[in-house]
Write a protein that binds this DNA or RNA. Structure first.
Lengths: 128, 128
DNA sequence: CGGTATCCTGACCGATACTG
DNA sequence: CAGTATCGGTCAGGATACCG
């Protein structure tokens, strides 16, 4: 009676450890996955502070969605909303220090995204 | 007449460069975003090859969704489906070399996800 | 300018049952 | 075992109009 046939699929400790990894990625994607969250964070990081700047910079996002996402990001501690009294009222968004922990994630995603886009372009070119 | 008030929001070259970043992240999220794709890739990378192994390892995924995602991953060049003739027919999934390019992304996401989960837990504990 | 309100569609996805 | 078929529900997010 073999206990492990091949691969590590039925090794208990292995399965547990794999679950830790899987949960971590799940948590990460839950927090910053979705179409817009990371893009908004990046856009703020690169100097866009105003609502309209963000909407202009992030192609395709609607006001409704940007508004909702900013609220969520604020609630989750990624973004700070600053309201300066005066006339007209000046509203600026900025990142919290916690957003800086995303640096490596963003960097690797940008790198991969660039090379992936190149790959897709090459394949498309070959398809003719 | 000031040309640039403050920040870099209206600097053209800057905006362009920011768009490159934004597009890269958009492409990446389009390809490997969503609830399951990365988890499936990770799960295969860690030795799970069979359909049922994957379904067992990836908590919460239904057969229907796993099937659809595997097809998409195959079509996009991340996964290879191997069918060994015999009885019963043995079907195994494995990663293509291209999936290896995701290593850094996965690594940073796992790291961040782990610390994020810790942060959430701490905040939850404080809330009492 | 910085949003909200309303409405709506389609993508995603869970459950269940069935098949070769 | 490795899926497919069908159904139905939820929800992200798009369009548009409006508001202080």
């Amino acid at each position: 009676m073999k206990k492990i046939e091949e691969g590590q699929g039925n090794n208990k400790a292995f399965t547990e450890e794999c679950n830790v990894i899987l949960n971590a990625v799940g948590d990460a994607m839950y927090a910053i996955g979705g179409k817009w969250k990371l893009r908004i964070i990046i856009s703020i990081a690169r100097g866009n502070k105003r609502f309209s700047e963000l909407q202009r910079q992030i192609a395709g996002i609607s006001g409704r969605v940007l508004s909702a996402e900013l609220k969520e990001l604020e609630a989750n501690g990624f973004v700070l909303k600053k309201v300066a009294v005066g006339f007209p009222v000046l509203i600026e968004y900025e990142l919290t220090p916690y957003s800086q922990t995303l640096e490596k994630v963003v960097e690797s995603l940008v790198d991969w995204g660039k090379q992936h886009r190149e790959k897709i372009k090459r394949e498309f070119a070959e398809d003719k």
